[in-house]
Simulated scan of single mutants.
Amino acid sequence: MKLVSRAVLFNLLNPKLTMLFFFSFLPQFITDPESHYVSRMIIMSATFMGLTLLIFSLYALLVHYLKSLFLHSPRISRRIQRCIGGVLIASAVRLAFTEE
């Protein structure tokens, strides 16, 4: 919960990204000049925020499931460690044969 509150505080104190996105991207979808501009922007912004919340919630559930799967399976943990070790060894070999 502490992480979520810090993220919300960060977004409230740094609104540049959000404002730039909403004011530069969303207006292109309002094609009718007779429509209520502000209400259309609010609807599109709320839809975007709702979908973002849904997607991030699904990511969180997936990561929680994978975390519990990896922590309780030593075999999977060993495979991950071997893969990371292989990547590090391959990077070291590539770096050793770089001519600069």
Rank of each mutant, 00 (worst) to 15 (best):
K2P: 15
L3Y: 15
V4T: 11
S5A: 11
S5D: 14
S5H: 09
S5V: 10
V8G: 00
L9S: 04
L9Q: 08
F10N: 01
L12I: 03
L13M: 07
L13G: 05
N14W: 03
N14F: 05
N14G: 00
P15H: 00
L17H: 00
L17Y: 01
L20M: 06
L20I: 05
L20A: 09
F21T: 02
F22C: 01
F23G: 04
F23N: 09
S24T: 08
S24A: 14
F25L: 10
P27R: 14
Q28E: 14
F29P: 05
F29Q: 12
T31D: 06
T31I: 12
S35M: 08
H36L: 14
Y37L: 07
V38F: 09
V38P: 00
R40W: 14
R40S: 11
R40H: 08
R40E: 12
M41Q: 01
M41L: 12
M41G: 12
T47V: 12
F48L: 05
F48T: 05
F48N: 03
M49Y: 13
G50Y: 08
T52F: 07
L54C: 06
F56H: 02
F56N: 15
F56Q: 13
S57T: 15
S57G: 15
S57L: 07
L62N: 06
V63D: 07
H64Q: 09
H64N: 13
H64L: 11
Y65H: 06
Y65V: 08
Y65G: 00
Y65S: 02
L66V: 10
K67H: 11
K67S: 11
S68A: 09
L69N: 04
L69C: 04
L69I: 05
L69G: 00
F70Q: 13
F70A: 10
F70G: 04
H72I: 04
P74W: 10
P74A: 09
P74D: 06
P74H: 07
P74R: 12
S77Y: 14
S77K: 04
I80M: 14
Q81R: 15
Q81G: 06
R82V: 11
R82T: 13
C83V: 13
C83N: 14
G85Y: 12
G86P: 05
G86N: 10
V87P: 03
V87Q: 09
V87Y: 09
L88V: 10
S91N: 09
S91R: 13
S91F: 15
A92T: 02
A92L: 08
V93M: 00
V93W: 01
V93L: 07
R94C: 15
R94H: 09
L95M: 11
F97E: 03
T98R: 06
T98W: 08
T98Q: 11
T98C: 06
E100P: 06
E100F: 14
